[in-house]
Every structure is written in structure tokens, then in C-alpha cells.
């Protein structure tokens, strides 16, 4: 993704991001000017009043109360201006416009799932219509997560047993990063996704095909493998990441940490996704979270079909 932003800020791609940036640059420039004044005075005093002889003892100046109080007064005024502006932008970020398109977000270690109003469940990437307010109602299956899209300047923690929400309106059609910004364990930095803002018609078309459509089970499984971030821990080319590679897995003999062993058949593959702690392969950490057990059955079937096909 090319950077279309300013020196400080990334691309501005939502209806509120411009206002956030203006506020940022206001505080930035106020701070910079005062900072340069402080450093300038410092440099000037260091040179102007440098010690010229070791026995020099300058005359003490009496403090100027007026100066102290005017400093305090001026900073209070500045602070109130910035606060009021920040408050207004915050309200705008906080209150979704009525009639926003609502998507249910479920976070779990370490993936994002999106449930659309028509019941379609889609993992990994969030597809939304551009130029239309979208409200995300979010919930976590396990620990704290946080939903962050830098280009939209929005962020909200996702908490278990409680709904939090955030809204945005994408003002350009493009692809943007989604980061998890609350530490959630081993693969925290792999809990990524994209927001893809489509024109409305394109979005409608996408939604109608999102459920897997006429893909073969292997193709659908391959897509899910990426969307669910399986690939951050399991390679398909034999390299070791965190967990075992999927290459040549089906039909091979597996040796478990418990001392037992088994042949990897379909049931083994399914069990390893649904209950990963039950049979941990020898030499690997029991690091896989159980959250994948909540995938819909058709998606589990597709994943098993895909893993079988990785040879």
C-alpha cells in the first residue's frame, strides 16, 4: 500500500480523519512553537550568560510574580482551546450517525470474524461499502483485543462479555490495514486484516458471493486458511513457523508429546482444529488457541479438505 499521507499522518481515508489530522497539526504546531521558544531561550542564556571567571557570582534577580502568573494564565487559555476542540472531534468519533450499516465483529486469538446483516460470516478481511457510515459492534471470545484502522483514525478495544462499538465512513475506495492494538498473546502481531472499501454495487455483489459461493471445498478452504491467519503459524511449504507445516501432513504418522502416535486422517485434522490441546505433536509448543472450534461446520469441512490437498 503506497503512503499517500503527510510526513506525520498516513493516508486520510474516512470522513473524520481530516478533522483528527487538523487537530493533531494544531497541537503539533503550538507545541513546536513553544518548544522552539524554550530551546531558543535556553541556547541564548547558555551563550549570553556563560561563566567568564570561576569566582563570578551574579546578582540574584527578584522573581517576577507577574511573569509566573501570566505563564499560568496563558497556558490555561491554550489548554482550554485545545480541549474544547478535542472534545468536539471525540464526540464525532464516538457517536455513529443514525442508519449506519451494522457489522458484527468477533475477535479471538488471533483473527477477526465479521458477521453481516444477512448472516454471512466472513473471516479475516472486512468488506464495506464506501461513502456510507458503517458501525461495528464488537465482542471478544477470549482476551482483550483492539480494532485499529490507521487510515480511518479509529480505534476501540474489544472486550469479552461486553459490546463495544466504533464507526467510520470510508471516503475512498481502497484497501486499508487493520491492526490489533491490545496485546493478546503469542501471535498478537499476526492478528492483521484488511478493510476493503467497495463502491456500493460492487459491495452488494461481493456480499452475495461471500459465503463460499461456487468455490470448490479446497479453494474455499485455501481462502479460509489465509483469512483465519492459519498461515501465521503453519506453513504450506515445509518450513517450521510456530506449529507444524501442512505440507504432506495428511496420511503421515504423527508422534505426540504424550508418547502416543496416530495416522493423520480426516478426523485427526478436524480434532486438531477444534481441540488443539488434545494431541500436541512432539517438539512443538501447545500454543494454538481453541478459538477455531467455533468456526461453522462448512468452513471446518473446507479447511480439512484444503489441508488434505497440501502435498
Amino acid at each position: 500500500m503506497g503512503d499517500k499521507g503527510t510526513f506525520w499522518m498516513p493516508q486520510s481515508a474516512s470522513t473524520v480523519s481530516g478533522e483528527v489530522d487538523a487537530l493533531f497539526y494544531l497541537t503539533f504546531w503550538i507545541s513546536t512553537v513553544i518548544f522552539l521558544m524554550v530551546v531558543g531561550a535556553m541556547a541564548y542564556f547558555v551563550i549570553r550568560y556563560r561563566r567568564r571567571s570561576e569566582s563570578e557570582v551574579p546578582v540574584d534577580e527578584h522573581d517576577s510574580r507577574l511573569f509566573e502568573y501570566s505563564t499560568i494564565g496563558l497556558s490555561i487559555v491554550l489548554v482550554l482551546i485545545v480541549f474544547t476542540w478535542g472534545f468536539k472531534v471525540y464526540l464525532k468519533l464516538n457517536v455513529a450517525p443514525p442508519g449506519a450499516y451494522e457489522v458484527q465483529v468477533t475477535a479471538s486469538q488471533w483473527k477477526w470474524d465479521y458477521t453481516y446483516p444477512d448472516g454471512t460470516v466472513y473471516a479475516g478481511d472486512l468488506h464495506v461499502p464506501a461513502n456510507r457510515p458503517v458501525r461495528l459492534v464488537m465482542n471478544s471470545m477470549d482476551v482483550l483485543h483492539s480494532f485499529f484502522v490507521p487510515q480511518f483514525r479509529i480505534k476501540q478495544d474489544v472486550v469479552p462479555n461486553r459490546y463495544t462499538s466504533v464507526w467510520f465512513e470510508a471516503s475512498v475506495t481502497d484497501t486499508f490495514d487493520v491492526f490489533c492494538t491490545e496485546y493478546c498473546g503469542n501471535q498478537h502481531s499476526g492478528m492483521l486484516g484488511k478493510v476493503i472499501a467497495h463502491p456500493q454495487e460492487e459491495f452488494d455483489l461481493w456480499l452475495s458471493e461471500a459465503g463460499g459461493g461456487d468455490l470448490s471445498p479446497e479453494e474455499y478452504g485455501e481462502r479460509l486458511f489465509g483469512q483465519n491467519n492459519c498461515n501465521t503459524c503453519h506453513s504450506i511449504d515445509g518450513t517450521r513457523i510456530v506449529g507444524p507445516s501442512m505440507q504432506g501432513l495428511f496420511g503421515s504418522q504423527r508422534q505426540f508429546a504424550s508418547g502416543e502416535s496416530a495416522v493423520a486422517d480426516e478426523n485427526y485434522l478436524l480434532n486438531s482444529i477444534v481441540a488443539p490441546a488434545a494431541q500436541v505433536v512432539e517438539g512443538y509448543p501447545p500454543a494454538m488457541p481453541p478459538s477455531y472450534g467455533s468456526l461453522p461446520q462448512d468452513q471446518l469441512n473446507a479447511l480439512v479438505a484444503y489441508i488434505k490437498s497440501v502435498q
Partner: peptide, 20 residues
């Protein structure tokens, strides 16, 4: 610098973006 950026982080609208 630390102090000024602290004030920037205290600005509600800006902190949403900069938090964490």
C-alpha cells in the same frame, strides 16, 4: 518533547488514533 507529546496524547480526538 515528552511533555508536549503527553499533552497531545491527552487530546481526546487525537489519542484515539495514537493510543497503543
Amino acid at each position: 518533547i515528552g511533555g508536549f507529546t503527553g499533552v497531545m496524547l491527552g487530546v481526546l480526538g487525537v489519542d484515539i488514533h495514537l493510543h497503543d
